[in-house]
Simulated assay, not measured.
Amino acid sequence: MTFENIILERQEKISIITINRPESLNALNGATISELSSALDLIENDTDCRVIIITGSGQKSFVAGADIKEFSDFGQNEAEQLARNGQNLLFNKIENLKKPVIAAVNGFALGGGLELAMSCHIRYASENAKLGLPEVTLGLIPGYGGTQRLPKLVGKGIANEMIFSAKMISAEKAKEIGLVNEVYPIENLLPKTIELASIISKNSPQGISKAIAAVNASDNQNGYEIEIKSFAELFETDDKKEGVSAFINKRKPNF
């Protein structure tokens, strides 16, 4: 498949998706969202790939936001469809993907860019990264899950402050409040992200898939039940048999 707005690469068991619209600071437009969705479908069906990294081109911007010119003249119905399609095509898809997705936030992550990073399972950031949800300065609110995911990551009070004030925060502040996992110099960001992805790729893909579903269910009333059932279902898998056998025989598992 040929892409115009993203670059898809493979390094062993790791797929790297780079949003490549440097002329617009990698802003998300409809075509880019569609290409990201298609790339994720390809990767999810690729049994040789275990982990996905999403980053932006250059050293200035991960994703600077949505492409506002695309929806500047929308009415209510069109706007609702825009948000619903975006969440279904991309943001919710990432969160519920069976393979872990790591965001390598290499600069500005604003609006839809921060929402994209928050939909990923893990976030690493460069020291120059700036993160924020500036939608209220446009008379809007986040529409790709920002009002839902941010409070779960940082707490309701900090989320309210960030959304209401529309202020940007530094990468170090983002780490302090739990919005990103680690912060690195820009030149080390992708290597460190690949290093983590490589560690993850050696673990049980069946176990990780169940873990993603269980963690995502942690906000539900039946989260514990989902964990119990997922734990039990793994006892019938080849990965569990291999993992336990490797442990008993004091060797490394080969998943």
Rank of each mutant, 00 (worst) to 15 (best):
P142Q: 03
D46G: 08
S37C: 12
Y124W: 01
T32L: 02
E176R: 08
K152N: 09
E9I: 05
D73S: 15
S57T: 12
S119M: 06
I16A: 03
P185A: 12
A117E: 01
G111V: 05
I33P: 00
D238I: 13
D41W: 09
T147H: 03
D238Q: 15
E95M: 11
I199V: 12
S170V: 03
N216F: 05
K250P: 01
F235M: 15
Q87L: 05
Y224K: 14
G86P: 03
F71G: 03
I94T: 05
N181S: 14
G113D: 00
D238L: 15
E35N: 06
N203G: 06
C49I: 15
T47V: 14
C49W: 10
V154M: 01
S245N: 11
I163A: 04
M168Y: 08
S72L: 12
G113T: 00
G146V: 10
I16P: 00
P134Y: 03
E233N: 15
A171L: 03
K229F: 07
Y224E: 13
I186K: 07
G30C: 12
S61W: 01
N188G: 05
M162C: 10
S201P: 07
R251N: 11
N128K: 05
G75C: 06
N181I: 06
S170D: 05
K252H: 13
G113A: 02
G111P: 04
E115C: 00
N26E: 04
R123E: 03
F231T: 14
A129E: 04
I212T: 02
P142W: 01
